[in-house]
Computed example of a mutant assay.
Amino acid sequence: MHVVQFLLPLRDNERRPFGRADFEQVRTELTERFGGVTAFLQSPAVGAWKEEGETVRDEMVLFEVMVDSLDRGWWSGYRAELERRFRQERILVRALGAETL
């Protein structure tokens, strides 16, 4: 079993906020495909990184899905679609091994 996670920004690179419907669409797509999703929409995470010597900060929401098997091709295509929709150069999708207790 795997837990697949990714972060989506609350705003694009020009600081324009995405609408709640944008995040709801992702939640609906993942629920329909995998039967469920956890979306941490109320408490955004704050990320920080260095870019050209300056610290850049962004607020993001986390999506998480549990899957029995990892379809790397599907996730790669979905990541590219999210990058297009959320106007991002790169969205990190990570898969972590998991077992239920």
Rank of each mutant, 00 (worst) to 15 (best):
M1G: 13
M1N: 09
M1R: 11
H2C: 04
V3N: 13
V4F: 02
Q5V: 15
Q5Y: 09
Q5F: 02
Q5G: 13
F6H: 11
F6S: 02
F6Y: 08
L7P: 02
P9A: 14
P9K: 14
P9S: 12
L10N: 05
R11N: 14
N13F: 08
N13Y: 08
E14H: 09
R15A: 12
R16I: 09
R16E: 14
P17H: 09
G19K: 13
R20P: 00
D22R: 06
F23H: 06
F23V: 05
E24T: 03
E24L: 12
Q25G: 01
V26G: 03
V26P: 03
R27Q: 15
T31K: 06
E32S: 06
R33F: 03
F34D: 00
G35N: 00
G35V: 07
G35E: 01
G35S: 03
G35I: 06
G36R: 02
V37M: 05
T38E: 12
T38N: 14
A39W: 05
A39F: 03
F40A: 14
L41A: 06
Q42F: 00
Q42G: 07
Q42K: 07
Q42A: 12
S43R: 12
S43Y: 08
P44V: 04
A45E: 14
V46A: 10
V46L: 11
A48M: 12
K50D: 05
K50S: 09
K50L: 11
E51V: 01
E51I: 00
E52P: 00
E54A: 08
E54R: 11
T55K: 05
T55V: 15
V56D: 09
V56I: 12
V56P: 02
R57I: 07
D58L: 07
E59V: 03
M60A: 15
M60T: 15
V61I: 15
L62G: 10
L62W: 04
F63Y: 15
F63M: 10
F63W: 06
E64G: 05
E64A: 15
D68E: 15
D68A: 14
L70N: 00
L70R: 02
L70F: 07
D71L: 04
D71W: 04
D71P: 03
R72N: 02
G73R: 11
W74I: 04
W74S: 01
W74N: 02
W74G: 01
W75E: 01
S76A: 07
S76P: 00
Y78A: 00
Y78D: 00
R79P: 03
E81K: 11
E81W: 05
E81R: 09
L82R: 06
E83F: 10
E83N: 04
R84D: 13
R85G: 08
R85V: 09
F86I: 01
F86Y: 09
F86R: 05
R87M: 08
R87D: 12
Q88P: 04
E89Q: 14
R90C: 10
I91W: 09
L92F: 13
V93H: 13
A95G: 06
L96S: 08
L96T: 10
E99L: 10
T100K: 13
